[in-house]
Amino acid sequence: MELLAVVGEEVSTRDLVRFVGIVGLGFEANVTFLAVTPGSRLEFRSHTDLAADLLHEWEMETAAMKKLALVEEHLVSFRMVMAGEGGAPITRAPLHRRKDGALVRELLGLDGQTFRLLLREGKLEEEVVIETRERAYGMIFLGMPRSWRQIYRVLQFTEPPVLVIRKWEEGEYKFLVCFDGSPPSWRALRLAARIAKVLVAPLEVCAVTEMGFSMEDARKVLDKASRYLEKATIPSRVCVEDGPFEKRILAKADASTILTLGTSRKSQVRQLLLGAAPLRLASRAPGPVLVVK
């Protein structure tokens, strides 16, 4: 499995690396840490590349390279990558330019997997979409970027599940899965269960009775979810809420809740054009939000 972690502006790189690193090691997945630097105009691009080369000769780095160096530093400090003599990480591939122009460096993970440090130039949301189109990623960890528009674009135009990490609180985490028995909500539940197992985090499955989804329906689907989680040996609770979906869910979530929800396939066009509940929830939730398609 391949995981993509996007280094955001508003979340600490240390927290992102720690969380994604733990999940990556738990899943035995290769992890790509992507930093996106604002693209300079075409007419200046070769000049800024040249300046970066000259800075490197003086043993200094550009802001974008510093971001990647920071990721590497944290990977080493959390002992997620194999270190050679002197504590330097063992590289699987030295810093090089890929065919699409992105700069990449590969480190050897503790369990033999690859930690990839990737630098792309352009608009963050566009570069994430392009990167996920070019490589099959199983999940995206999106460190909070500067604007919500960027999150909307990533959620709208990428296929893999997206975990938006807005703010990372120290301490225990718990999952709150919004569940209605639909295929996307089942996918959300399965993914949340996998991550919860790795993080040893409690999980709560919640159904909200609203617009034709009765209390009886809710109990039925929650029953199925409980049985699944029991089988998977994941400690869990279920709950039923009555009232407006977004309001009820937000009332239950706090900063240490990973809010998990699936998006409905039926409303894909509508989502693309108008946005949808997951997008609104992602912008209003106090903690991380995991959106599964």
Binding site: T48, A52, M60
Partner: peptide, 16 residues
């Protein structure tokens, strides 16, 4: 602006 001249873009890329 940064885009006004390559020199501006270059010093901006330093991150300082």
């Amino acid at each position: 602006t940064i885009m006004a001249n390559p020199a501006n873009s270059i010093v901006y890329s330093s991150g300082w």
